[in-house]
Each structure stands twice: as C-alpha cells, then as structure tokens.
Design a binder for these strands. Structure first.
Lengths: 301, 301
DNA sequence: AGCAACTGTGTAATTATACTACATATCGAC
DNA sequence: GTCGATATGTAGTATAATTACACAGTTGCT
C-alpha cells in the first residue's frame, strides 16, 4: 500500500488496547525501538513526571535528540502523537508506577515502601477492572439473586475474603455461611441443596481440597461460582467463573493484590444483588442500609 | 497590586494542593464561576472523556462559548491553562469518577455497578495514599520491628483486617495473634507485656469495647498502634495512630473502602518490617519469601 | 571491497493550537 | 436611566506539534 519507506516501518504492529499502561508499553517496546528513540524511552522511564510537564522541544533537548524523533517515539509506542502520549502518561502516572518498574529494595525507607505498595495496589486494581469478565459477573449476580442460601469457601488469604463476604449477608439478603476449615468445608458443601449457591474463592485455583469442595457442592445440586486467578483449574468445576486477573502473576505480591481484587469483586456482587432486590423488596433494602449504618457507628458484628 | 479589572478577579483564591482531583475541584468551584464558564464546567462534569480528547476550539464549540472563556475556566479551577487542565483531567479520570459524582442507582445494570465500585475504590485509595501520615507510619514500623510479639484487634470489617494481618506473621517475623471476640480481646490485651505491640483496628474508633482493649493493652505495658479513620477517639489511647482517611466519611460505602485502605496499611507495615529485618537477618527474609511462595501455590494456611 | 538500497536521524518549513490584548456587551447600583 | 464594573467575545500573536524532505549511517549483495 504505502511505498514510502523511511518514516513508518510500522507495517503491522499488533498494538494492544488503548487502556494499556503506557509505561508498560514503553518498556515492552524498548527492544524494537531505534537508537535515538530509545534515548527518549530511557528518559521517560527514568523520570516520567519530568516529561509530563515538558514540551517536545524540552524533551528533545534533554534526550539529546531531534524533535521529530520524540514524535516518532510516541508513535512507536502506540500513540497518536505527542499530545496523546502525554495524556496517556498522565493517566498511567495517576495510577502509579507499575510494580514491574519499581521492585522493593531492602534499602527502601518507609516512605518508598508506602509509595510502591500503593502504586502496585492501585495499578493492579485498574488492571483487574479492565480485565474483568462482565458476562460472568452478570451471571453470578443472577445466580446469587435467586439463591436461597449462600456458602463461601476459601483458604488462607482467600479465607479472609470468604469471611468478609459472609459478613455482607445483609446485602445478599439470604443466610450466608463461610467455611475456612477443610473438614467443615466438605461437610457444608455436602449439605448444600438445589437453590443454594456456593462461592469458591481461590487465587491459584489449584488447591486440591478446594477443588473437591467445588465438585461436592455441584454434586449436591448447588450452583458454583468461582472467584479465581487466570489459568485456574477451578474454572472447570464452576457454573460461573469470575477471573480476577492480577497484573503480574509471578510477582511476590500476587497473594496480596489478588486478595484485594477479590474483595472488590465481593463488593460488586453484594451491592449489585442488593440493588436488584430493591425493585421487589424496597423495605429490605432500607433495612440493609440501616444495618450498614449501625455497623458504621458501633462497628459490632 | 494589579489595577486591571476585567480578566482576573482572582484576587486571593485559596487554591488547594495540586494533587486534588480536578473534577472535585470543578464541582466545588461551580458556584463561584461566571455564567459562561459554568457552561464549560457543566460540560466537563457531564462528559469529561469527551473534553479530554478535544481541543480548545472544539470545547468552546460544544459549550457554545468563546475560546478564551474555556481558558478562563481552566484558570478559575486552579490550572495553569488548558494544557495543564487536560493533564489533570487525565490524571483524575485514570482514577475513575469520584463517588460524589456517581451515586449508585437501583436501576444500574451490573456493568455500571462494576464501574462505579471500582471507581470509588481506586479514587478512595488514591485519597488515602495522599493523606496518610508518613511520620506515624514510620513510627509504627519502628515499634513493630522491635516487638517481641504482635496482637491484632478488630471487630466486624476491621476484624477481617486483623485476621489478615495475623496471617502475615512470616513477614512480621514474630508470633502474631488476632482476637475477634471481645472477651478474648480483653484477655489477650491483659496478658500483653512490655516489648509486645498491640495493633488496634477500628474504622470509626468509637466502639466502646475496642477503646477498652487499647487502654488495657497500654496498661499492660505494650505499645499500642491504632489504624482508624479521622476524628477517631481511639487516637487518644494509642502510642502511634495511623489515620487511613477515606474520601467521604458520610457515604454508605465507607466501611467497604476503609477496610481495603486498612489492608493496604497492613501490607505496607508488614513489608516494611520484613525489609528492615533483611539487613540483619537475610536468611529470615529468604525463608519468608519461600513461605509466601508456598502460600501461593498451595494456598493452604 | 565497493556499490546500492535502505533504514535511521536531523533540518527546515508548515500547520494547528493555545494564549493574549483589546473591544463590546451585559449586569447592577445609585 | 446613566455610570461603573464585570463578563464575554473577536481578532491577532506566539508557541508548540507535526510534516516533508534531505542527508548520514548501515547492511547486503556482487
């Protein structure tokens, strides 16, 4: 199609979605960049905030390249131009520097630990938000809405989530249980009946006993909702699987963030179910609000 | 000073810090704006994303005002100009629309509930991050670093946090306990000894029995760290108080978000303590990492 | 090794965009 | 109703982003 050779060697670059963190993008594209463009990239990665408030001329100056090179760099990392690049950079910086850039060091002062963990948590939540399966979520809400009782299952960090979900029973509007011990879990799963819903929470989805629980619950006639990470074998045992993907699954903080993402999923499910019920049972909703407020002021279970 | 009258009636406007969410800013300043500027403000609040990708000319066109008015609007809400405004808008939109703008409606489809809850969670976390008392955090880390044992206390949603913290004991590196029942709490608090640290978690900080626990722990000679919301009476009973402020304290979701903010605080504390120990006990740190990885792959407590 | 083709980078011109100075309209008070 | 003051728009200017083009450095082929 184009027979001009020089400027755009961008024949068929598979640029990922526009929501992608631009710093991540720069980082992954680093290898494909030309020497001069790379100077710009290095500069951006080293001190993004500086570039954010700079013009093309300044950026070119600092990076010791020409102005068009700066623009070419912007295009190379998937932006429309410099303006667009700055906007995306602002977007990314708002969320914080992704964890892949800033690894915690033993020498970090508390201040740095604070920044990095907040950065990581917020970035990951943003990621989880954009990668959440809306379809599955809707189905899960439908199941929970029609449940006669709900049972939550989880171990370790996910056990925390299960218990938290159970505490939201005023929102779900039906009896809720949370089993954290594997024996109790099997027993509870066996006792489930059609109309009941089991919510199985596991980041890896690989724990043997949690898979058993999901299967048992299903055999008992209950519907099974799974909240888990990507590539999870748990999915096979669920009627609906909500994948709460985390930014970087190999990272040491994965359990930390997956836990928080799962909590947000619970918030969404409980709130959505409560809102749905409103149409039919407005009184119930009001009561729930009252309960929540009581919880706020006295904070007693 | 300036005797020109027309353009800048901005004699001495007390503009808040630059980190402030620009949408919040626009909203609070709405009353002070001139009629035409207000048209722009309404437009921005109604469809911020549209403005983000528009030029001054387009914005002026849509709002049916002149181009300088758009710039005047930008200055009026505390920006340097249109460029700066766009950058800040990008920043704010990255975090999501703050909850004050988007209240959940009974008619919201699941998709909307998802967006709003993620928005609210992320915005609030950002808020909490910028309002966190770094000083207090540093002191808390110091106390935990030198603790011989740590005991976590909390009720309801905060009880979840306490238990989560206890599960991070490999990071803290000393025996950790979590008491969720008020009788057990008093007993545990009484049994604390000098060198021990009590972490008392309560969003409102007004629950009677949790205040008693803090006091008892202190009388037993233990140091007390509080994780609580603003205006909390709990602060008086603590050696160090970490205020995890939430965006909007009167909102119905306050317990929801304060819970997550508190979890992030726990993450920061545990990680910082673990990192500190590294200098002296590198082996311990390695072991901790191994433990965490085990946790990841089998997810068993 | 030497020529050719191509990729990479910078210079200079162009265009678009944000911003400023000025003029006119609108509002409110006496 | 007129005057003063504030608010808004028009027209022009400066600046920043973008494009077209030309040169330099690399790589491949005979």
């Amino acid at each position: 199609m184009t027979d001009i050779a020089a400027d755009p060697p961008s024949s068929a670059r598979p640029l990922r979605g526009t929501t992608q963190n631009i710093l991540e993008m720069v980082r992954t594209r680093l290898a494909d960049l030309r020497k001069s463009e790379r100077k710009v990239a290095d500069l951006v990665l080293a001190d993004p905030r500086r570039i954010l408030n700079a013009t093309i001329a300044e950026t070119a100056e600092i990076a010791a390249v020409s102005q068009p090179t700066v623009i070419r760099f912007c295009v190379a990392v998937g932006c429309e131009g410099f303006q667009d690049f700055r906007l995306r950079l602002a977007h990314s910086l708002a969320l914080g520097t992704p964890a892949t850039h800033s690894v915690l060091l033993a020498t970090d002062p508390p201040q740095a630990v604070l920044e990095k963990i907040f950065d990581y948590t917020i970035t990951s939540l943003d990621w989880a938000r954009h990668h959440m399966d809306k379809e599955a979520l809707g189905q899960a809400i439908l199941l929970l809405e029609n449940a006669t009782a709900i049972e939550f299952f989880g171990f370790g960090a996910s056990g925390i989530v299960a218990r938290d979900a159970q505490q939201k029973f005023p929102l779900f509007g039906v009896p809720c249980g949370a089993q954290l011990d594997s024996h109790q879990q099997v027993m509870a799963a066996s006792m489930l009946r059609p109309g009941n819903v089991a919510v199985v929470i596991s980041n890896t989805g690989r724990t043997r006993s949690i898979l058993d629980v999901a299967q048992t619950a299903r055999e008992s006639g209950a519907k099974v909702i799974g909240i888990t990470g990507s590539d999870s074998p748990l999915v096979a045992h669920c009627d609906v699987a909500i994948i709460a993907e985390t930014l970087d699954n190999t990272n040491i903080y994965t359990p930390t963030i997956s836990r928080i993402a799962a909590l947000v999923v619970i918030d969404i499910l409980s709130t959505a179910v409560a809102l749905r019920r409103t149409d039919e049972h407005f009184q119930r909703f009001e009561m729930m609000k009252k309960h929540l407020n009581e919880l706020r002021f006295t904070e007693k279970e």
